[in-house]
Design a protein around this nucleic acid. Structure first.
Lengths: 197, 197, 197, 197
DNA sequence: AGGTAACCGAGACGGTACGTCCCGTCTTCTC
DNA sequence: GAGAAGACGGGACGTACCGTCTCGGTTACCT
């Protein structure tokens, strides 16, 4: 497997350029959306040659993912709220997500990301590994705590977290209805009924 | 307000061309995906001038939506399975969807459509009016039947159908896990627990 | 020989664009020279898409050749001066060429053209057919008139015209010395000595 | 006028690199021609950093000139054939040049060089000083010998050598006709007629 | 003999232009 | 007047090189 693709040397990478590119991508995805975002636009706004982008990222999806992760500090640890009130914890997670998505530019950004993974399995895998997976695991861990406390039944937690987040994202992505606090309450209520011992 | 936009006369529209365009779009979206599908490609494959497409559709999203609707005969009535076994009915709906999505080219097509609506609110509205909305309503109607039969509690049905479909689409769109019959069973089981009287 | 290269239809060609392109090329080659002339620059100055250039010309050499021919009206007939004084006729041809080359922008243009043919045999052939060949033939014809009049010997006229023009272009292209009226006189004098009966 | 351009120290120059660069340039100009030769290509083939080229040569024209001079050992003395037969001497010079140009890779090289000087006056001057000038002078000296011997008239020798070489290069550079032994004979014959006492 | 300045290979960088693809509009000719 | 065909001005693609720069490493001179 010779692979003559001449991979660049990360040690020599310009941190200044990397930052400028991620910042430019973040701004542009908020301003014009993912589809209309162009590599040329990012390069120009970042004051960077196009090649510098192509050298380190395979396509614009990868740039946008990195920009999103940088923005949300995703690689830093994330913790699921864990008080002694399961219902309140679940409600908090949904309502704070509603709060984030109320910011139109964040919403556009996140929607872009989820659009991008539809056409790029590699990107989807990365998103899962670095963002969704850990978060789903944290959610399941919170539920396991509740199971051990006897608050909920020992059900199929994989399906449970899908019900939890899925109902929510379903509305948002397919735009079948508005997201509201009441809606969050309904979802949490139904989920807890499904999981009651 | 005269509006000089010179709208074409639908009476003179060529049915032959319309069909050819929808067929070409269907094939191409299966072959190359939504992002790489081009209006020029559709026109060429359909043996049609580009103007004929632009005359009748505003953009490629609308073409793909029409192609999808034509393919699934969506405008023809759709009926939710309604036997005397609610659990079986729900399970049937999910498993038959799993069956459809197992066809890679259909999956690609459907995924394309959902990608397209992320960047086009008008398209999202149309999809809701012509496809998702009626189907969600049919689902709720099935649940209302069960409520009247005393099989399930009189819960927030809007949230309930979101749990039902959402968990499913969440997995599929975000690629967080595989779709399987067992998974369908789990979702239905949890939903019924949430709705039991 | 199927040849699926999709050749464009000359009947639909935009004359306005063609003119704009040739004009822009003429100006740019005078301003910046052949090497620094870019297709993008020509397109931009002409207010034309790049594809419109690539559709009708294979490369910038061909554009520059056409621009030169349009400038010099070369396709219109050209006549070699033919009075009853051979020496004056020959001298006139050289001195008027000196005059043309004194215009720096014309000189740059012509030099560009001759540069271009060094790396493009096809272009060289076209230049010969449309410009150099007819002119060399006209020169030989003038000499044949003189032969018939008994003014000069019946020598190898091909070599004779090469001596005539070659000495001249040799100086100019290789920059071994300046072009002057006296130099023209010397060349004509030597040539006539070589050809005297 | 301090001039802070930091000129490199020729004493420390790597002879190995210099040779490798000239060799690589020679090969590449033969293989791909002057236009398609790139500094990066030369550096890569020579196993040399680009900076090492830019440090010692201003541009690729200069590299190619040096490569040509190294190839032809031009800086070593060159002598014009001087027997007691002027006609044979002249004929020998032309026919041996024909011989050299029959080598396609040499021809491409030489043509490249002459292309390069069209867009670079400084290079043209260097070529004249180091190659063309001495050779034209040697030719004129041979003719002066003939003048002193009474073999030819005391004409304008500058113009005479231009006739001699010009006719030849005119054909070759402008590709108006083939170079052959007969052609050489014709040129020499005409020149001698022009110069006969 | 050790220190240091310069050349060297390598190659990342901000750029420019390449030649191609497709956009959405416009024009021409046919049915 | 709708439609097939496709030229047009334009914008972005991903690639190739430009000429500059920065980075260790390796000489070669100079204390």
């Amino acid at each position: 497997m010779p692979e003559h693709v001449k991979t660049p040397d990360p040690a020599r990478r310009s941190e200044r350029s990397r930052q400028a590119i991620l910042t430019a991508a973040t701004e542009l995805v908020s301003e014009v959306g993912y589809q209309k975002l162009t590599i040329e636009g990012v390069a120009s706004r970042a004051g960077v040659g196009k090649q510098t982008i192509y050298r380190w990222w395979p396509d614009k999806g990868a740039v946008v993912l990195d920009a999103y992760l940088a923005l949300t500090n995703a690689d830093a640890g994330l913790t699921f709220p864990t008080t002694d009130d399961l219902e309140a914890d679940l409600r908090l997670v949904l309502t704070s997500t509603v709060g984030q998505l109320a910011d139109a530019s964040f919403a556009r950004f996140y929607r872009s990301l989820l659009t991008a993974i539809q056409n790029d399995e590699k990107l989807a895998r990365q998103l899962n590994e670095r963002l969704l997976g850990p978060w789903l695991e944290a959610t399941k861990e919170r539920l396991r705590v509740a199971v051990r406390a006897g608050e909920i039944a020992d059900a199929d937690l994989d399906a449970a977290v899908d019900l939890f987040y899925g109902s929510f994202y379903y509305r948002w992505l397919l735009r079948t209805g508005p997201l509201s606090t009441e809606y969050c309450d309904s979802v949490v209520a139904l989920l807890l009924r499904a999981l009651r011992p």
